[in-house]
Design a protein around this nucleic acid. Structure first.
Lengths: 175, 175
DNA sequence: TATTGTTATACTCTATAACTATA
DNA sequence: TATAGTTATAGAGTATAACAATA
């Protein structure tokens, strides 16, 4: 797949994305999209109506977080993007007893979401099949060195994107 | 972010995803998710109600395809995943005169979707702002060499995933 | 009989704005 | 007055199954 070096009026004087970057970006999004679909199907089959977003929330709490819990707003910024959307998803997960919501001790406005034992159990049940799908779809054409290179390239990008103003920073009332 | 070398019963005897691969995968999905949200917002602001899926369809036709057209099923497999979903999106794009659908000449069951001049114009209008967002979110922490390395890593993955049995290969009627 | 695309329908998800409670 | 979270509501998007047309 080749893209013109200069696309849509973006000339070389104003150095923007060149063809290589555009190709990397499109490949990234296509891979992520196809991968998400493949994983979605696996979760549907093997985890009984666990959507990908819900799985992301569980992994975020169960694998990324050392305490197994996070604030609602932080979860919304990282995974779901809108507070109301997270309230909805957290409600579903809580109804399934996979997470629990408790008011924060210091600041009573905050709500802390924590993964339950049942949530960790489900995560452990799902992960083998999950990693099988990831291995088959994503890592099959890559060597171990490639995988490490990919991780090293994406880690700073993720950190950078996390540092950008999150959605929750946007003004909520315009008067 | 570190993950245990052996997760959820996946032992080392049955070599599955190791910690590095798991980290690369989670980073990939998080980056793609955050990026998609950022781009979605830009498209909403600058392209007047063009969703990301619709933008993907236009770029696929306008930049990826040499002829500017593709079969419905191929577009569905690559971007939208379900035929009916693509019919819906293609209907919206056609109503906006950004694509045109014509029955295929050889096989009259097939429908060919082609980007229109208006579609190409819109694409050209949107791309500068689009690339600006991509540059700021995705490529800012990367060097030019990093971008090339990323492209080189993801290209074979994309090709591999495209070669896997697509959604349209699944049986449609089970009796 | 298999394949392509559309349609009808139902459902999931997401977002905006209004609302409550706390800081 | 600002922030955290919830709720009501509405809209966009998606999927499944049934359908028509063509191979």
């Amino acid at each position: 797949m080749k893209y013109p070096a200069s696309v849509a009026g973006v000339t070389d004087e104003q150095p923007s994305l060149d063809a290589v970057e555009l190709g990397a970006y499109f490949a990234l999004m296509e891979v992520a999209g196809l991968l998400r679909h493949a994983v979605d199907q696996q979760l549907l089959r093997e985890a009984g109506d666990l959507s990908y977003v819900q799985f992301q929330l569980l992994t975020r709490l169960g694998l990324d977080s050392s305490t197994g819990s996070e604030r609602m707003t932080d979860l919304a910024d990282g995974v779901v993007y809108s507070r109301s959307g997270l309230t909805y998803q957290a409600g579903l997960l809580e109804k399934a007893d996979l997470v629990a919501r408790t008011p924060s001790a210091n600041d009573e406005r905050e709500v802390t979401v924590g993964i339950t034992d049942a949530g960790r159990t489900l995560l452990a049940t799902v992960l083998p099949g999950h990693t099988e799908v990831i291995g088959r779809h994503l890592f099959q054409p890559l060597t171990a060195e490639d995988a490490e290179a990919l991780a090293d390239l994406l880690a700073p990008v993720r950190d950078h994107m996390r540092s950008l103003p999150p959605r929750s920073a946007e003004p909520r009332y315009r008067r």
